Simulated assay, not measured.
Amino acid sequence: MTDQSAAESTTLIELDLWSDLVCPYSWVAKRRVETAVAAFERPHDVTVRLRSFELDPDVPRGGQVPVSEHLTVRHGGDAEVGRLMNARASEVAEADDLYFDWDRAVRANSFDAHRLCALAGEMGGPALRSAAVERFQSAHFSEGLAIDDHEVLQRLSAECGLDERRVSAVLASDEYADRVRTDEQQARSMGVTSTPFVVANAYAAVSGARSVDDYLALLRGVATATV
C-alpha cells in the first residue's frame, strides 16, 4: 500500500465513529480522526459520521456526583482505581491538546445530549453535529458542567448555533431517541461494547483511541482495497 495508490483511488470513504460524550478516549479519537482525514491525500472524499453510544445508560441524571467518586463506586470502592484511570486518560490526551479537569468533572447521563447531537446533524449536517459533540465534550471534561441538565444543554446548544425553540421541544419530548437507539443497536450488532469504535466503509474496523497514523493507515487501506 502506498500514498500514491491511495491518491489515485476513486473510492469514496464513509467513516463511522461511535463514541460516548462522557468517554475521554472518544474525545481523543474524534480529534485524531479529524487530523488523519486532514492529512489524507483525498480528504474531500471522506465523510465522517459521528454515531451515538452510551457506555452506561443506567447512570442517574443529576446529583453533581464527581466523576472520580462515580468511578470509585463502580470499582468496588477503590478510589485509587478511579484516580489512575483519570490520570491515564489525561496523559493520553495531552498530546492532542485536550484538557480534562477531573476536580470539576461530574457524572452525567449522556442520552439527552446524544439526542441533541442527532438534532444538530439534521439541522446542519456533519459540521454542526461535530460542533455539538465537541461543545458537549468540552463542557463535560474541561468545564465541570452537567451535560444531563436541561438548562445547561439549552445554553450549550445555543452556543453551537442550534435553534433554541427546537432544542426546548426536543428536550421536552423523546424526539431523536430512536436515532440514538438505532446507532447503539447497530454497534452492538457488531459486538461493540466500548468506545471509541471506528468503521470504514462498513467493513474495516478499529477500536480504542488509536494514533493518527493508525487512522490514516485505515483510510489508505480502504482507499486501495478495491483498486
Rank of each mutant, 00 (worst) to 15 (best):
77 G>D: 01
142 S>P: 05
195 T>F: 02
73 V>W: 05
96 D>I: 05
198 V>C: 02
123 M>E: 12
209 A>N: 03
205 A>W: 03
203 Y>G: 02
105 A>M: 15
38 A>Q: 12
155 R>G: 09
128 L>K: 02
25 Y>H: 11
202 A>D: 10
91 E>Q: 09
148 D>M: 05
34 E>D: 13
201 N>C: 00
54 E>F: 03
95 A>D: 12
227 V>E: 14
67 V>S: 11
66 P>E: 05
222 V>W: 07
49 R>T: 13
29 A>Y: 10
6 A>R: 04
88 R>Y: 02
226 T>E: 13
39 A>K: 13
4 Q>V: 11
161 G>K: 11
27 W>M: 14
124 G>L: 00
218 L>H: 10
166 R>T: 14
96 D>Q: 10
193 T>D: 09
113 A>T: 04
7 A>E: 01
94 E>Q: 12
128 L>W: 00
95 A>T: 09
200 A>Y: 03
96 D>F: 06
191 G>S: 00
63 G>Q: 08
80 E>L: 12
177 A>Q: 14
77 G>R: 01
90 S>N: 12
36 A>I: 08
203 Y>D: 14
138 S>Q: 12
193 T>V: 11
28 V>G: 10
52 S>G: 09
91 E>A: 08
5 S>E: 14
155 R>A: 13
76 G>R: 03
122 E>T: 10
94 E>K: 14
143 E>W: 01
49 R>K: 14
214 D>T: 10
175 E>M: 11
150 H>C: 03
163 D>L: 07
197 F>M: 11
161 G>S: 06
40 F>P: 06
74 R>L: 15
17 L>M: 15
165 R>Q: 13
58 D>G: 07
